[in-house]
């Protein structure tokens, strides 16, 4: 059962990075302040924590299932490997773009955003679901697919959950200290 540990570890690392970035996106363009580095760091951590909170129960269930039914381990590995076939290059490209963003001078920095970061944020939900399709095609059974789907849903929920949290927090502040709403008022 020890073989293939790299699969869940890689998935967890990718989910953690994805959560942190979702937290960052949710905080962007909220306050209008010029200096927001500290808030950016906090936003990444908030995203990470939210991802842990949402994905944690799925991970616990999978772990429990594997402990009770050790043969299921291989089913999860099949699904995980299939998903990583897509998620790994996707994640690696995003990380490469982030490195490029940091390394390129300010004049060219936008290239990383325009070519990779923006389009990849747009494609992210589709890629997440495509990973599930690959898992299904690799022959993963229904219980494993259900766990994978729950994990994908949880990962995709991080940003909207944080958005809602911000709207609720802003509504509690009367009058709002800084503009933090999300949806157009109805």
């Amino acid at each position: 059962m020890t073989a293939g540990w790299w699969v869940p570890v890689t998935l967890v690392v990718l989910a953690a990075l994805d959560g942190a970035f979702a937290g960052f996106r949710s905080s962007c363009g909220r306050t209008g302040l010029i200096r927001h580095r500290r808030e950016d760091v906090r936003a990444h951590l908030r995203g990470l924590a939210t991802a842990a909170l949402l994905l944690g129960p799925v991970a616990v269930l999978v772990l429990a299932d594997v402990l009770v039914h050790p043969p299921h381990w291989d089913d999860y590995l099949v699904a995980g490997r299939a998903m990583l076939l897509l998620y790994l290059p996707f994640g690696a490209t995003v990380l490469a773009a982030l490195v490029a963003y940091v390394v390129l001078g300010w004049r060219r920095r936008f290239l990383a955003t325009a070519l990779i970061l923006g389009p990849f944020t747009f494609a992210r939900p589709f890629v997440a679901v495509a990973g599930l399709v690959l898992a299904a095609r690799a022959g993963a059974g229904y219980p494993v697919l259900a766990a994978a789907a729950a994990a994908v849903l949880a990962a995709l929920a991080v940003e909207p959950v944080l958005d809602r949290w911000r709207v609720a927090a802003a509504a509690r502040r009367q009058p709002p200290a800084l503009p933090t709403g999300t949806a157009s008022p109805r």
């Binding site: 962007c28 363009g29 004049r107 709002p176 709403g181």
Partner: peptide
Amino acid sequence: EEIDALQIRVHCELQRLGEELQLPR
């Protein structure tokens, strides 16, 4: 007042675009 709040939120988001485009620089 609601439209003002909306305009402020929209312009906060717009500022983000300006940041990405390195507009002030």
